[in-house]
Design a protein around this nucleic acid. Sequence first.
DNA 1: TCTCCCACTTCTGTATACAAGAGTCTTGTA
DNA 2: TACAAGACTCTTGTATACAGAAGTGGGAGA
Lengths: 231, 231
Amino acid sequence: MFPPIFAFCVYTEGMRASEKAYESLRHDIVQWCLAPGTVLAEVEQSARLGVSRTPVREALARLVADGLAVQQRGRGVVVSEVSLEHLDDLFDLRRALECEAARLACRSPRRAEFADLATAFTAAAHTEQIDSATEDYYQLVARLDELIDQAADNAYLATALRNLRVHLQRVRRLAKDHPARLRASANEHAQIAHAIASGNTDLARAATTMHLHQSFQHITHFATDLKGTND
Amino acid sequence: MFPPIFAFCVYTEGMRASEKAYESLRHDIVQWCLAPGTVLAEVEQSARLGVSRTPVREALARLVADGLAVQQRGRGVVVSEVSLEHLDDLFDLRRALECEAARLACRSPRRAEFADLATAFTAAAHTEQIDSATEDYYQLVARLDELIDQAADNAYLATALRNLRVHLQRVRRLAKDHPARLRASANEHAQIAHAIASGNTDLARAATTMHLHQSFQHITHFATDLKGTND
DNA sequence: TCTCCCACTTCTGTATACAAGAGTCTTGTA
DNA sequence: TACAAGACTCTTGTATACAGAAGTGGGAGA
């Protein structure tokens, strides 16, 4: 009765079926278990997830609202494409949002908390084998993102960022992590955290802009490599 | 194609029942026909809209995703509150997004099209009885918004702005339109359109910032009046 | 052999039936 | 009279049945 791919959601207990279906599908799409272009037929998914069509429909509607799937006339919904064509658009919006978040965080009474994170990032940048601790590193990044969101204290901004980060997660899968890039990224994050901790708005925006620029360059470069060699 | 701002749906013909329910509920919420706090019971709404519970459920889920309604445990969904408490947050995000849109529009090959709109806004500002042509004026604003979206040519940004503008529409209802404010607003919009037409990024951002600041001040001022007198 | 048309299959969209849970009202007891 | 407990009702959450539409495949005709 248990669906094949469902290792991540331990807590199906008190969850509604529609919630379960949504989380499962969302996870599978973000993690590329369901590749772009995959048709999400209602009956097929309801069988796979072990629930009826009704909650699956609700889940699919939410995925379409998230932009993770698109509704095709007559053909149901399919997993949306991940295109590098609009990566610059994604990053334009991301820069606008993250710079604003950084600005607001600079004015937060909690901004001192960023000093510890800055130290942690600097340490991470000097870790010998950073590529073997990728998961830890990404968790650190998540902590910084979360702290910025909390310090910015703007629900509208947080929602916009949340909607955006899903797409980013999918795109990121296109680029493998190189140790050199991870190290550089850690340093950039340290700079951002430092800037916020010091309350320097201009510096925080600049650091954020720099980091996003480097990240964009990395993904673009690697994705081109991928297309040329593997794809 | 889709109308930019659903003036309302006369076109229930080829529409799915769920779409119809969504547009109808969304319209009623934005137009304050359904006041904040109103309980959106599924059976009640399905009877009112003449469709069954299934499409109503789908519509309600979308409204919750939009932030126009909130799901209350055990009590179904209710129309979300419109609070002035977080108006500054709304405008912080709005400034970030609209400034970015204006910046991108400045780089668009279509930026020359803004010159005509600038002229139209200047004319509107000099209309004798601007308060009797409020609808026309708001349509002009909608045209500018739409043109900026198109010129910015960034689907992610357009989505974020669309999500935000719904909340703004609701808040705007708190403040009556005064002729003086409408005139000033028309001039501010003319400035924005002029700046974009000339391709001056800094000027476009400044004009946008100024307009949003004035708009924020107006709503804040009036809303305080409202609370003191009518409410 | 190619093309067009018709029928069949399969899918979505909608309605409705059923079950579980929460809230409320009523009644009984202290 | 007030409080508590139980039952009832209303609501949501889920499953399923049915209808309509769209795609597909096969057969017939040119």
